[in-house]
Amino acid sequence: MNYTLHQLKVFVTIAEHKSITLAADALHLTQPAVSIQLKNFQQQFDIPLTEVVGRQLYITDFGKEIVEASQNILNEVDVINQKLIMFNGQIAGKLKLSVVSTGKYIMPYFLTDFLRDNPGVELKMDVTNKAAVVRSLENNEVDFSLVSIPPERLALDQIPLMDNKLFLVGNNESPLQTKSSHKQKTLESLDLIFREAGSGTRQTVERHIQTENLKISRKLELTSNEAVKQAVLAGLGHSIMPLIGIKNELELSDLKIIPVRGFPLQSTWQLVWMKEKKLSPSAKAFLQYVEEKKESIIKEKFGWISDY
C-alpha cells in the first residue's frame, strides 16, 4: 500500500458528494485530476471501491469501510496539525456552521476578521434551507447555526445578532403607491409570492396573516430568497421579503418598498447551538469574538438598515 493523505481526502470527498464533478468543485481541483487520484487509489485494492449504475456513482460496501477508515486517519492528522498550531499559541481547528439561506447576507461579515486573525481555523459553512439547518443541529454536525426563528423543540443556547426586518416589496412597475401607508387588507388583493413552508420568513409572514385574520392569495411558493426576488423583479407578483437581501435592488430602484400599516414585520437573527454541545477551542473563540464584536460589526456593515 502506498496511498497518500491527499488520495484519502479525495476519496472521502467523492463519497460525501457521490459525484466526481461535485467533489472536484469542493476540492477546487479539475475533474480529470480527481478522476486520476481515484484511479490511483483504486489500483491499490483488489476489491472495487466504487461502481457506476446508469450515470450515478455509488460507493461499494467495501468502499464505505475504506471511507470510514480514511476519515479516521484524516481526523487524526487534523488533531496533530491543531496541536502544533495551538502549541505556537494560536487557535486552530474546524469551525462548522449551518446558515439559513437569507443568513448568507450577514454571516460572512461576522467571520471575515475572525478568520483573518486565526488562520489556523478551517471554516465549513453550509447555506441551506431551515429544515436542513435544524437537522444539522439535531445530528450534532455543526457548532453553530444562524436562524431567524429558533426551533422550539430543541434545547438551545443562543445569542441575538441583529434585527431582521421584512417589508412588502414590488418591482418598479407595481401600481401600488409608496407615499402613504396602505391598510392591511391591501395584502388580500395581491398575488403574493411565498417562501417554502418551514422557512423563517414564511413563519413570520404566516404568523402575521393569522394575527390579522387576512385571506391571502398565494401566487407562487419558491425555495430561496433569491428565487422570490427574481420572481418579483419579473413582475410575477409582490412578496414580503427580508430587507437584508434587497439592498442593491432598492438602491437601483428595481424594487420598491410598499408601505403597509404595521410593517415592517420583525424577527431577530440568532446564533444558536445545542445546550449540551461541547464547544471546541475554535468554536469557543468564535463565540467570544461574536459577543465582543457584534455591535461594532452591525454599526459598520449594517448601519444602512436603520434608514428603512
Rank of each mutant, 00 (worst) to 15 (best):
R218C: 07
G93N: 14
N40T: 08
W304Y: 13
A23T: 02
S145A: 15
Q43K: 12
D126W: 13
Q230N: 14
K294S: 06
F41V: 04
T4G: 01
K229D: 00
I240F: 00
R55Q: 12
S189Q: 05
N118R: 04
E292D: 10
D163S: 13
T223Q: 14
M274G: 07
K165M: 09
E188V: 02
N81Y: 11
G54S: 02
P151K: 11
P281T: 09
H28Q: 12
N129R: 01
K39A: 10
S70I: 03
G54V: 03
R207P: 02
K215V: 14
I298M: 07
L190K: 09
S98Q: 10
S136Q: 13
D46Q: 10
L137R: 10
S70W: 01
D126L: 15
K104R: 14
L115N: 07
L279W: 14
E152D: 13
K294T: 05
S70V: 02
D117A: 13
A131I: 12
S19Q: 07
G89A: 08
N171M: 07
K83T: 11
N213K: 10
V133G: 02
A234Y: 04
K284G: 04
S180L: 08
Q177T: 09
N171T: 05
A285G: 03
I159R: 08
Y58K: 14
R135H: 10
F167G: 01
S306K: 13
D254W: 03
F62R: 02
N140W: 15
E122V: 11
V169S: 00
F62D: 10
P48R: 13
N139G: 06
Q266D: 04
P32L: 10
D254N: 14
E65K: 14
A26N: 01
M241T: 00
K124C: 06
K9L: 06
L166H: 09
P259A: 06
P150L: 10
E188N: 07
A227T: 08
I20T: 09
I297T: 10
L220S: 06
L5Y: 07
V127E: 03
T13S: 03
V134A: 12
F45T: 10
Q71T: 09
I209K: 04
T211I: 05
I73P: 00
I240E: 00
